[in-house]
Write a protein that binds this DNA or RNA. Structure first.
Lengths: 342, 342
DNA sequence: ATCAATAATGACACCGGTATCATAATTTAT
DNA sequence: ATAAATTATGATACCGGTGTCATTATTGAT
């Protein structure tokens, strides 16, 4: 036998038409039970596999989902935010469970998204994942939407956004963190992470934090907000900036765990005790947050659930079902670094 | 205009045959410069994208590589070894650079590798990635090899293995770690990580370690080798096992950074100082290894290079070039946790 | 016995490109 | 001027399946 077996080979072996083979292998009820079994047996024997290109071409679907992961352009090449990797894991699993394959692509935000996976029929839909500066991102989303591309976006859930978004309640998460800090006696709470509209998730977390401060009758000190992207290095640098301000602060709420890890490192190097002198809180509950010293208080986003919801929502969208933007709950995880009671 | 544009639509607009359109879009030199430009312009205007299913079907290649990531079956669902995620990142980038798409699939080792991506023409080749118990793995590799599937494996590089492997020099890495520990005055070096043939990488690291011990004129204490899989939890548990033995030891060489992090946690909880009482060394140089306290001495595997080599080797194999099993160097990174001079 | 309904299968167009060969137009060589 | 080579394009088979309609065999109803 030369080359791969085709459905014609099987038809020949089984003494039936190629049509029947095709139907049998898809378990069509139109095929006689016995014939189907025979065909399956022969297919197995010949190690036959349906050619997905042919099948997809004709049926106009790919059984594949594309995941576009947007990297913060400034972030190190080899470092990817563990939170997104965790999402990637859960998305992969959710896809597998639904019988879909997953095409993964890292996009640089500046890029012209060269990979129009759905347009070229390599994927039936797209999941967009990533923090970062979304300046011309929105524009692209509008274009996708107008083209009728099936996509779902992970991120901040806001009114009037193009397309469908799934995200955790960042405002609530920021609120919970800050309220907890205040209840533990902290008065001057710094925030490290981009608090501009460009990173809507961080912005929501910051706003939630401010809301908690005001609700407690305290005043927000805008100076205590330092920009940072989500890497340890950036957190480390931001913490040094914060110290240089000479403004009093007794707690730091970091927009991500990676930032928090850098902040902890910087503060300790400057001789501060955590949480005795300064409380530090992160966000994301990455696996290592409970293995650093002190263990890190953080906010958990349920990545397993998120991945499932993303995939399910996308599949619904592909199947033209009505879907809605969804907001998942965020959950405060109190550990040592905030000094609060557990 | 209803539906997506096809090459016929463009041909019609441009007043040429569909053949010419197809050639022009692939930048064939057979097409007149001017005609080609015109066709490209029209294609852009109509937002035309080549249908990959059709194209791949005819040309019998997919421009896609499949990455199968083998999960340790016992490992937690949401946790993936950062080292592999780093590999995933570099592989993704290397693929992008070569113009290939990447299909990612997490396989459970028990699974019947349902996804025969190359057989069904969804991919041109396969990259296999993962630690773990390779019992019936080898058998499957032999089958892949006999089918003529194009694949490259990451892992231990050994004689007489089926197919092509790319890996770091684990023996050397283990040797370097242990030699450094001995030179720093450590005498009783424990090893945590599976040291059986089932996990060849770990086995090589252990053997390298033993070799260094013997070369220094010391004796290997087999009792100081504890099994563990590559998670913090497993490392934590293994460290407790080690302590329970009541055997003297002054250093722990962990087969991975995740294990080391668990070990550090366990030892400190029992009141030991690191590195004063016990030196700890990990393996992989995951991003967080320099952010935990104390910073972790470890062995770096150049994931960027590894990803590039994997992809390049696979592409060479797909193109029927002669390729060879490759061993990449491992590099000791001395930090605080081993107590050695930097 | 005759006809309608059902079950099982075959024949064939079709998905949207690529590969190959044929053809027409233009240039170069003799 | 004519043959040969080169350049640009068209026509058509083909990749390997799926979808649709036609056909035949079987069963049940009248």
């Amino acid at each position: 036998m030369k080359g791969k077996a085709t459905s014609f080979d099987i038809a020949h072996h089984a003494g039936v038409s190629q049509s029947t083979v095709s139907r049998a292998l898809r378990n069509s009820p139109l095929v006689n039970e016995e014939t189907r079994a025979r065909i399956h047996a022969i297919a197995k024997e010949l190690n036959y596999k349906v050619d997905k290109n042919a099948s997809n071409l004709r049926s106009q679907q790919s059984g594949t989902i594309a995941l576009l992961l947007f990297q913060d352009p400034t972030s190190d090449d080899s470092q990817i935010n563990p939170f997104f990797l965790s999402m990637l894991g859960s998305i992969t699993r959710a896809c597998t469970q639904k019988g879909y394959d997953l095409l993964v692509s890292f996009q640089e935000l500046e890029d012209d998204w060269h990979a129009d996976y759905e347009d070229c029929h390599k994927a039936d839909g797209i999941i967009l994942l990533g923090y970062g500066d979304y300046t011309d991102y929105e524009e692209k989303l509008i274009q996708l939407e107008s083209q009728g591309t099936h996509f779902v976006r992970w991120g901040a859930v806001k009114e009037g956004q193009p397309g469908i978004s799934i995200g955790c309640d960042n405002f609530q998460g920021g609120f919970d963190v800050t309220q907890h800090l205040i209840q533990s006696g902290r008065k001057n709470i710094a925030f490290i992470g981009g608090a501009s509209k460009h990173c809507p998730e961080f912005f929501d977390r910051y706003n939630g934090s401010c809301h908690a401060i005001e609700k407690a009758g305290l005043k927000v000190n805008a100076k205590l907000q330092i920009e940072a992207i989500t890497t340890e290095q950036s957190g480390y640098a931001a913490a040094l900036q914060l110290l240089a301000l000479k403004q009093p602060f007794d707690a730091v709420f970091c927009a991500s765990d990676l930032i928090a890890i850098g902040v902890v490192k910087a503060l300790r190097e400057r001789g501060m005790e955590i949480p005795t002198d300064i409380a530090v809180v992160g966000y994301d509950n990455i696996p290592l947050s409970e293995f650093i010293r002190p263990t890190l208080t953080t906010v958990q986003q349920d990545t397993k659930l998120a991945g499932e919801v993303l995939v399910e929502t996308l599949l619904d969208r592909i199947n033209e079902k009505q879907v809605e933007t969804t907001m998942l709950p965020a959950k405060l995880i109190v550990r040592e670094s905030c000094g609060g009671k557990n």
